[in-house]
């Protein structure tokens, strides 16, 4: 599903954000990326989303070679990926409902069909009652959950999440992870950037450890006793 093959990312100022990263995630796999801030977690997610192009190496996601992707392919590529952004990236002049419906509208879903899916997604994150609210009226945690609903509404084949539980209390974090695991069970590939060590420990998933742009460790889940 996602394949990094000696991928490096150097910015124009010479700073090397990622160097020689290689790993592969298959269908239905759930992995964490962890590391200190500045370790390259966000850059790695940006590469998968085609927000940045790799400087060297091969990067294939969803069967698309992201080194040779054209501008028109980028939009198509992003539609297959649900992304939860650290800073939510919500539209403040649209209601919660319209925010979550945006990916469906872009793909041209029928209004009836879209409504069903939007409500199902909002229900999953416990915000069904807030569908008419505007993002500014919501707490940070609620905004984050709107972002999560938007990421999953289109039933993407890949879900990327950048600190999705950063603003959530442990109980809600567990809820969100349960939603993610539901998607994992139907074959969605998930990559979650987080530095919530307790959460990572508890979920016992594959964990990629980044440090200074290098892949320090690729920890497989502990065998369940």
């Amino acid at each position: 599903m996602i394949k990094f093959d000696s991928v490096s990312k150097r910015y124009a100022d010479g700073q090397e954000a990622l160097s020689d990263i290689s790993f592969e995630l298959s269908r239905g796999e759930f992995a964490f990326i962890t590391g200190h801030s500045g370790a390259g977690k966000s850059t790695l997610l940006k590469l998968i989303l085609a927000m940045e192009a790799p400087s060297s190496g091969q990067l294939i996601a969803n069967g698309v070679n992201l080194k040779r992707i054209s501008a028109s392919q980028i939009a198509q590529h992003r539609r297959q990926i649900g992304t939860v952004f650290q800073d939510h990236q919500l539209l403040h002049d649209r209601s919660v409902y319209d925010n979550v419906a945006l990916p469906l509208e872009i793909c041209g879903y029928q209004p009836n069909d879209a409504a069903r899916r939007v409500r199902a997604a909002l229900d999953k994150v416990g915000l069904l009652k807030k569908e008419k609210s505007f993002p500014e009226a919501l707490s940070g945690g609620e905004q984050q959950r709107v972002g999560i609903a938007r990421a999953v509404v289109n039933r993407p084949s890949i879900i990327l999440a950048d600190e999705p539980t950063g603003n959530l209390d442990p109980e809600l974090s567990a809820e969100v992870m349960k939603v993610f695991q539901q998607f994992q069970s139907v074959g969605v590939c998930l990559l979650v950037a987080s530095h919530d060590a307790a959460l990572i420990e508890r979920l016992n998933c594959r964990t990629l450890v980044l440090e200074g742009g290098k892949l320090l460790a690729d920890q497989k889940p502990r065998p369940v006793l």
Binding site: S72, R78, Q80, F85, D93, L102, I106
Partner: peptide
């Protein structure tokens, strides 16, 4: 601009 950025992030084409 912010709105367009979000639209592009979730897969909206330039034409959209």
């Amino acid at each position: 601009k912010a709105e367009i950025r979000v639209i592009k992030l979730v897969g909206g084409s330039d034409m959209y």
